[in-house]
């Protein structure tokens, strides 16, 4: 039995550890790929260099999804703003959780979809948006809804949209470098006069990293996403003090057979549970490795430990 404060600090440490591993990985991959690229083409890029260019390209594509994430998603999903009368529980619960967190009330939207789900987006608490499906509002009672909304508010409070955007930029950077290196290999402009031990080691490592780093990067990205889910679950209990609410909400969500119609890959990590239903959840560790969310039974177990 762990109390909520112990869970919180344990989560923080684990999350920081994964992020640290991620940063180390990005540094190593970038360093090796750039050196291999320079060796292979026989040309040391000056100024911004390869990293600078890759960072800009990767950054621009992610910037828009970061800055306008709410508008993009809401455009795709066909959401309508929540109405106090019509969505009384959702509206007032969100107001209340915001009071409890000491944050401004986020913008609230409802998507017409039978699959029960919810997500949060927006670059900081002042620009946050929480969105639920009509399926969620129909199936959950007020206490369960409180658990879900508090989970989303914790994503907002922890700046998870920002974190995941930065992570996406870094992954994009490594992927671009790997791609350029692979291309330069095919062009085969290797100059023999620079042949040396260090050079060939970089070349060898470069090949290994070019093949492995996109997938390794993605796996770490998913690990970060899963850790943030546990943090959001714990944060939800911290504010509502009612683990049972979130537990039964998760049970209801996981039992629902409908997949979300307008699921969006860029925001999958912000939903309360994965918008893609891949058969039975919580099967092997291998499938789990490729999920944005921990299996719901595991999440419920973690919540029960706090109850």
């Amino acid at each position: 039995m762990k109390n909520i404060y112990e869970v919180r600090s344990a989560n923080k440490i684990k999350s920081a550890l994964i992020v640290a591993i991620f940063v180390a990985f990005v540094f190593a991959a970038t360093y090796i790929l750039v050196n291999a690229l320079a060796y292979n083409s026989g040309y040391q890029a000056g100024g911004f260099g390869y990293v600078g260019i890759a960072l800009i390209v990767s950054g621009i594509s992610s910037f828009f999804s970061y800055y306008y994430s709410d508008k993009i998603i809401l455009g795709i999903a066909g959401a309508r703003p929540a109405d106090r009368k019509r969505d009384f529980d959702f509206y007032t619960v969100a107001e209340n959780i915001a009071i409890g967190e000491g944050l401004p009330k986020p913008k609230l939207y409802v998507i017409d979809d039978a699959s029960p789900n919810a997500f949060a987006t927006g670059r900081d608490p002042a620009h946050a948006t929480i969105c639920t499906t009509t399926g969620l509002l129909e199936k959950l009672n007020r206490t369960e809804l409180e658990g879900v909304v508090a989970h989303e508010m914790t994503h907002v409070k922890n700046f998870d949209t920002r974190l995941m955007s930065v992570v996406a930029v870094m992954i994009g950077l490594v992927a671009l470098l790997a791609d350029w290196f692979t291309r330069s290999m095919f062009m085969g402009r290797r100059r023999d006069d620079r042949e040396g031990n260090a050079g060939s080691i970089f070349l060898l490592l470069g090949i290994v990293f070019a093949i492995l780093s996109p997938i390794v990067g993605t796996l770490i990205q998913l690990a970060i996403s899963r850790r943030r889910e546990y943090m959001a679950d714990a944060g939800s209990i911290e504010i509502t003090r009612q683990p049972q609410g979130l537990i039964s909400a998760l049970e209801k969500i996981s039992q629902d057979p409908n997949p979300l119609r307008n699921a969006n890959k860029a925001t999958a990590h912000l939903y309360i549970s994965s918008p893609y239903k891949k058969g039975k959840s919580g099967t092997s560790w291998l499938t789990n490795l490729f999920n944005t969310h921990p299996p719901i039974p595991d999440r419920i177990k973690a919540l029960q430990a706090m109850a």
Binding site: V93, I97, R142
Partner: peptide, 21 residues
């Protein structure tokens, strides 16, 4: 009933913020 419940929830959450801080 809904409004009364909500208004007492609001007071509870406001108190919780003070307690937590």
């Amino acid at each position: 009933m809904d409004e009364l419940r909500d208004t007492s929830d609001k007071v509870m959450y406001a108190r919780r913020l003070l307690i937590d801080l």
